[in-house]
Amino acid sequence: MALDRFFRRRRPQQQAGSDMPDLWTQCPACKESVYNRDLEANLWVCPKCNHHIRLEAGRRVEVLLDEGSFVQLSGRVHPTDPLNFQDTEAYSDRLVRAQKKTGRPDAILTGTGSILGLPVTLAVMDFAFSGGSMGSVVGEEISRAAEHAAQIGTPFVLVAASGGARMQESALSLMQMAKTTVALEGLTARGLPYVSILTDPTTGGVTASFATIADVIMAEPGALIGFAGPRVIQQTIRQSLPEGFQRAEFLLEHGMIDDVVDRRNHRNFLAGLLGVLTRRAPDALPTQQSPEQSSEQSAEAPA
């Protein structure tokens, strides 16, 4: 089944010297080896250090949506090489390689589904495809998904994971920032909620457009989120960056996001929130939390 495939492809690193390599995954943060079954049950949050391991887009859909509810919208729009871009490698070759690696035409997966029974339209960026970079296809698919949400009257949920706009489509990539913003206007016109979830990493033109004009902005713990990358900033100012700079918790502290939410609590958080905003009752209400403790509590809340 899909889960097994996911593991074989995604396993970041095998335990050194293990004679049963498929059973273990090494946490990229604490380097502990974790039994895959435990990791899966924990939604790919390291049980030892709470590190949120990056998710491939298909896996993200499974983590967020009710089982079997996903109906895919994206997939028919394919990238081209409008500038005939060539660096150390041709853009067209890079595209083919990324497509083979991920099985997707580009760095985006969209569709409809439900979260605890509440219908949503979902767009998930795929960091595994060229660093989740946004070119014409990503912009188009996100725009179409937002327009679809407005048309069928569901909230729109977007999971961001991107290094920013895609250099190989130059100004066309840049224009996707304005295009997606235009497409999101339909949700505002119809009074439908738009929630974005910023995951590690979300930077550049994605942060500076659709990802941060959501009604509610959530972020995964520890996610790197910013406009300029840390290296660029360091080169510009020539001083070391403060501890925790540009991490989700830093942005919460500076008032830029609504909350840092543990992945294991995303479904409950979204169902509770969207239920109130759309005046509908989710199937199963999230475990009761007082609003003050949501941040702290979410760190320990089980799925």
Binding site: S209, T212, A228, Q246, M256
Partner: peptide, 21 residues
């Protein structure tokens, strides 16, 4: 846009996104 610590603290990306909107 200026790539600095304070610019990030004050939401450089947010300011640009909102200005586009």
């Amino acid at each position: 846009a200026y790539p600095g610590i304070e610019a990030e603290e004050r939401g450089q990306a947010w300011a640009i996104a909102e200005s586009i909107q």
